[in-house]
């Protein structure tokens, strides 16, 4: 039982994790690209002002000022190669009402990225995804069986992801347009940065020991913040038992998922070769049944498919499942 695709994927994941989280040490200085301008925070929302009692981290995070379609943390300072999470960019810049000239190039860059690779960013590059896979690898090594969630839960998780995505953008708009008082807007801002479990982990593993955990703990109005923190941390840690549990509710995954169909990467199924052995379902970390059930169409792309290609790797029928990048065949089963 060789699993070549999984081996390639593990290697890519490890490399990208190291680059994204610690890759900054390779470069002495920061690079700025003229067509992707550096976006500054509005006064009042800088990390220094949010956490006045903490040491101020440098303004610019990564070596390159790009926001990739992956979930990482703005609090992971100084050591990363890129600035990370596009969802962070989106919510903060709506908050700042960044002028379109600075805002749009980043959005265009994001759209090009996800159009080319879709949710491949999630399954192969996202450091948060890799952390969850590490937990799952630990479980495998201990020979503890995995747990699956029921279909109803699975559906509600996906709805929850869309709800979060909507909430993040709406709250960002609420902060930008002064409907509420300054104090409550600050609380909303804290809440928005509370939804990413990466914020609780990356600061600590990169040596910046101040993170939203402290906002949640020190804030006087923080009951909601504490609850959200615990819920999202639990979702992340649950990936020890349930494969990629956080990816199921990831709002950025929901956004990336829109580009899964019709993008550069696609999975095709040669229906006549399928013996309905169900291996693709049993291995799917997102518990998708559609590849197993598909009996007519060639294309089996689905939003929320994190493109781990585990189904292609495990499928015993040669050429039954194929991964394509536009016209070119990348991998095939068997």
């Amino acid at each position: 039982m060789k699993r070549p695709i999984s081996k390639v994927r593990r290697t890519v994941q490890l490399l990208s994790f190291l680059l994204l989280v610690y890759g900054g040490v390779l470069f002495k200085k920061q690079f700025t690209v003229s067509w992707l301008p550096y976006v500054k925070a509005t006064p009042g929302f800088r990390v220094a002002e949010r956490l006045p009692h903490l040491i101020t981290p440098p303004e610019q995070a990564g070596v390159f000022d790009f926001f990739l379609p992956i979930r990482s943390s703005p609090f992971a300072r100084n050591t990363g190669l890129f600035r990370g999470c596009f969802l962070y960019f989106l919510s903060e810049n709506i908050t700042y009402l960044t002028p379109l000239g600075q805002f749009l190039p980043h959005v265009v860059f994001y759209i090009i990225c996800v159009f080319l690779l879709g949710m491949l960013w999630c399954g192969w590059i996202c450091p948060l995804g890799y952390l969850q896979d590490c937990l799952a690898m630990l479980r495998r090594a201990l020979h503890i069986p995995q747990l699956r969630v029921s279909e109803l839960w699975q559906k509600s998780f996906h709805i929850f992801a869309y709800v979060q995505l909507g909430l993040i953008l709406i709250v960002a708009l609420l902060i930008a347009f002064p409907v509420f008082s300054w104090e409550s807007r600050k609380q909303l801002f804290n809440l928005n940065s509370q939804l990413n479990p990466g914020d609780y982990i990356f600061p600590y593993i990169t040596g910046f020991n101040h993170s939203p955990i402290e906002i949640a703990v020190t804030n006087p109005l923080s009951l909601i913040l504490k609850i959200t923190m615990i819920v999202f941390l639990l979702f992340l840690l649950a990936s020890f038992f349930v494969k990629v549990s956080y990816c199921r509710i990831c709002p950025l995954g929901a956004l990336n998922g829109f580009f899964n169909r019709g993008g550069g990467i696609s999975i095709e199924k040669e229906v006549s070769k399928c013996t309905c052995c169900g291996s693709c379902y049993l291995t799917c970390p997102m518990q998708f049944k559609h590849i197993y059930l598909e009996k007519e169409k060639r294309n089996v792309d689905r939003t929320f498919c994190i493109r781990c290609f585990r189904c292609v790797d495990i499928c015993p029928e040669s050429g039954c499942l194929k991964v394509k990048f536009f016209k070119y065949k990348l991998f095939q089963s068997g």
């Binding site: 039982m1 013996t275 291995t283 015993p316």
Partner: peptide, 25 residues
């Protein structure tokens, strides 16, 4: 003809893969 495709080599995982191979196809 049908192959056992084990995803995880825990006891439960192997049993599940075995059952899938003998029943589903």
């Amino acid at each position: 003809y049908d192959l056992v495709e084990v995803d995880e080599f825990s006891f439960e995982g192997m049993l599940e893969a075995l059952c899938a191979r003998y029943l589903l196809p």
